[in-house]
């Protein structure tokens, strides 16, 4: 709704985030740079290490830009896989509302 360049952008992740999805995800994230982003991971059935790497690299870049990078909704599979591979997404979980 806000019209400034800091308007929140959202990104809905595909159900299968495998080798084939990594490049596409990378490009989508790059295109969203410069604005706060809310990631919807509710449809994720499977996430591989490569896509987890891209997301984490994104989180760092946004942090450097002092923009918010949050996960709004997450699927069970998404949470469990990140736990399994020792990637802590708790600090990135959306807290508002």
């Amino acid at each position: 709704m806000a019209s400034r360049n800091t308007a929140k952008k959202s990104l809905k992740l595909a159900p299968v985030l495998d080798l084939n999805e990594a490049t596409a995800l990378h490009e989508r994230l790059l295109s969203l740079k410069g604005a706060p982003v809310v990631i919807d991971a509710s449809a994720v059935e499977r996430i591989g290490t490569l896509c987890a790497q891209v997301l984490m690299a994104g989180a760092r870049s946004w942090e450097e830009d002092r923009m918010s990078f949050t996960f709004a909704k997450v699927s069970d599979a998404f949470v469990k896989t990140t736990q399994l591979i020792g990637v802590d997404i708790a600090p990135l979980m959306a807290k508002e509302i």
């Binding site: 490569l50 790497q53 891209v54």
Partner: peptide, 15 residues
């Protein structure tokens, strides 16, 4: 080892 988003190779191993 994870590089910045701009220079990451999405199919390379970093973790």
């Amino acid at each position: 080892g994870l590089p910045a988003l701009g220079s990451i190779n999405p199919e390379a191993a970093y973790f």
